[in-house]
Design a protein around this nucleic acid. Sequence first.
DNA 1: CCTACCGATCGGTAGG
DNA 2: CCTACCGATCGGTAGG
Lengths: 227, 227
Amino acid sequence: MKSDIAPPAADRKPKRARGRPRKTIDERDDGNRRQALLSSAARLFRRKGFDATTTRDIAAAVGMQSGSPFYHFKSKDALLYAVMEEGMRSALAHQQAAAQTVASAGLNPTQCLRVLITAHFEVLLGPGSDFVPVMLYEWRSLAPRQHKALGVLIAEYEALWLPTLTALHDSGELRTPVRLARLLILGALTWSVQWYDPKKSASLQDLSDAAMNLFIGHGACAAVPRS
Amino acid sequence: MKSDIAPPAADRKPKRARGRPRKTIDERDDGNRRQALLSSAARLFRRKGFDATTTRDIAAAVGMQSGSPFYHFKSKDALLYAVMEEGMRSALAHQQAAAQTVASAGLNPTQCLRVLITAHFEVLLGPGSDFVPVMLYEWRSLAPRQHKALGVLIAEYEALWLPTLTALHDSGELRTPVRLARLLILGALTWSVQWYDPKKSASLQDLSDAAMNLFIGHGACAAVPRS
DNA sequence: CCTACCGATCGGTAGG
DNA sequence: CCTACCGATCGGTAGG
């Protein structure tokens, strides 16, 4: 029932009835629209999930019309991948910076682990941290090609833990094979995104202390008996 | 454009052209159709996610037509909730049975923890274990009322760990506050659904050993120094 | 449990 | 980046 005869233009729509303020010129095209889409997408993907979030939701969150996100991203999938990649790159940068500090300070393996753990919590639970959780929980929605690309970054992130874990294993402070230790430890830390509440729960420092005490046997076993 | 005038019946459809075999009477209404829907839904929800799974997918997986799942379940949401509830009830039963055995055998707290951990791995990673992972990863898709109902079962499950963790904390073998220890330990174990591969990875017993070694300081600290 | 269908929504696009 | 729109899909239902 498509009609080629359009109704009179006057009946179709008001001339300009939108209430949203016009953009000034310097708000346009400076690249922050793309970033705004990424941030809103990350927040919505995390709260509602990828499939339950519509591109219209994301557009509305940054004051765009429904078709406009596709001016910045080729598809909804591309937007998801961009969120995950940004999350993983920032996580990697954060953890590498921590490792740098640690190396120049000459800390021992136990102190190193503590720094790695705290940095991990900061990436996952710190302010504005929706990007990495999206990656953790929307992995299924990614195409195989995208899996592979992100896998490189993930492997790099996990590799940062190996020297410290190996040293702790060799010294007997960590009584678990390194590979399984890494999986279990990162799992314990990562699962915190499910239950951590910054308003009600402990500080990230307290969390790190608890984790250290859980994973590492007495550094001073027998030397400092419990009082 | 709805028309009240139906085309001649002869033009509408062939008399009976379906190739799928007719059901015998004893396949009907014995309740296993509902169970088949639950199992297929659990498998699909886990592999593709709740939103990405259509009720048509689920129907096809058990050889039904697209509308038929709604004869057994009021809505797609009700199907999801049923999957989660079955998962949680079976997990609870499994863990309670383990606790029963432990109590009658008079095991010490360390041995108790080992039994709890193994039972947890069995629930998550054992054969046919899609129900609990669905609960873990599709929590967002549930209505608040359903959250509350499942929360009762989850609290009961978590409470099973407290006596053992408290005993281990009191004896000094667990050097972390009980609440945080429970969250971190269950997180480490639960995250295994993301990486465990029964074909390539260790056995559930090996996994339990690794976890025990990671969480529990030397039970014989100073008494059995490393050789 | 099947048939036949509906209403709504959604990702995406043409053209400006 | 907006307007106006399309094609496809999906949860759900009436009636048998």
